[in-house]
Design a protein around this nucleic acid. Sequence first.
RNA 1: GAGUCGUUAGCUCAGUCGGUAGAGCAACGCCCUUUUAAGGCGUGGGUCCAGGGUUCGAGUCCCUGACGACUCACCA
Length: 518
Amino acid sequence: MSDDLTIRDLRLEKLAKLRELGFDPFAVERFDTPTSIADLHKRFDDLAPAPGDDGHPSPEDIATKTISLAGRLVSLREMGKAAFANVSDGDDKIQAYFRKNDLDELQPGAWAAFKLLDIGDHVGITGYLFRTKTGEQSIYVRSLTPLSKSLHTLPLGKEKDGEQWYGLSDVDQRYRHRNLDLVAKKDARSMLLNRSRIVSAVRRFFDDRGYFEVETPMLQLEAGGAAARPFKTHYNAYDMDVKLRISLELYLKRIICGDVPKVYEIGRVFRNEGVSNRHNPEFTLLEWYEAYANLEDMMSCVEDLFKDVAQKVFGTTELHGLDFGKPWHRVDMLTAIHERSGIAPEELRDLESAKAAMKRVGLPTEKENNLGGVIEKLLEHFVEPHLQEPTFVIGYPIETSPLAKKDPNRPGFTRRFEGYVLGREVCNAFSEINDPIDQRERFEQQLGERAKGDDEAHPMDEDFLFALENGMPPTGGCGIGIDRLVMLLTGAEHLREILLFPMMRPDKPQGDDDEDED
RNA sequence: GAGUCGUUAGCUCAGUCGGUAGAGCAACGCCCUUUUAAGGCGUGGGUCCAGGGUUCGAGUCCCUGACGACUCACCA
């Protein structure tokens, strides 16, 4: 930021003066912080020396009850020859009391150094705990160690009665300078920490159940396993174009083919699509596969997962008016569509009559060119908004499910379900195709769609087919978008709230060596 | 990709009818040895997003562009 050059220059001068005084903050490598600030507050009475008659503890007591802490200066109240500051370690903060006489006596130069500090600087402090006359738990500083100098004004705002005057309201700036957001905004911090806890709980869930966590290639010749446009890039060593993965599916199933019966992966996938409050071009996908397991096993696994994660992270299974401790509702897809739209299953047997029904209920039909697409559109429009409580919708059309086993009892449909909560999809699962001939036919069918102009249709993958041809056990698989799971559990309204660094355009135009296409 | 709205001091925002820009906080100086959105007195700080146009004169009106927010469309 070239605009606050003056502030930056002033702070650089202060830094130089600190160095002259022998308090170079950037020369320090470590500072012992045996107890967190939260812990200091909790154990205040144990750690604080007893005040004597003059209100100050005895030298002996001080000697045995000196503590240290480090953190960022987040507020400063100077009063001539004494000052109060709040020091934050990110989680919690404590008030520090600086007094000229004491500092000058105990640590020559320290008071002058203190006067050169600004809000935003990191400091290490040693001293003893005491209460001010207003009763606030504080530390009486006996030694000061500057640990960093901030060259800019932090948008810390101020605080009163627990309420925050936050200086960064421009959401754009919050995401572009997430470090400032994390420093200054408690909600941002806790939302992002909760994400970390959720991911950790998910991992423990699968680890405890005997799944192996694996990592599969992100650079792939053909990006398969989902319907999406991939990012393309180039691998110089082999002079070969490669794509970034759009899903984890096909490599995880290769591992099942290798007789590792329970695997999962939590990893980033990339889809070359737009940004919205629920979309980011890179996002984190969880997929797990279990050999010899069927759809019912997958459903109870999803139920257990949500229940377990909610309990571990939030201490309750009841969130946002929902109870993840209870089994999820289960509905058949066509039945649900019939109930909500009046369109009977018989009308959805061929594209012609399905489109007629769609038209009858007032939906546009121009873009529809396969029966499965129509059926999913009807589900989305009529049923999804009503699926507030956790619900599994079972039985997806074959055209939109090129990797799911056919339902032997229902031609045109597959053994696949999706889970919905609060009207939004939260998981997608099916009995995986393990018949290599069936899988090849499905890929060929997809190639047909691709020829018709659907550039998100699944590509052929001979290598995957070869793995299937060597034998894959019957397998259940399921995928969950971690970001959306976190949104659901934390109640975040926007994906960017729970993504540390969401995709953004550069705030200044880049060099023009690239013309925009399209 | 389409529509609507926005962009003014480090931060949050005012700026009327077109007449060369204001507040609070932050910063800087002085005072203040238990304050806590500390207080008191004083000072400095602006490419009004960018580029064009209308006008004697544009933060203000018009056009184009950049970036953002919201809504819609596609997807998880």
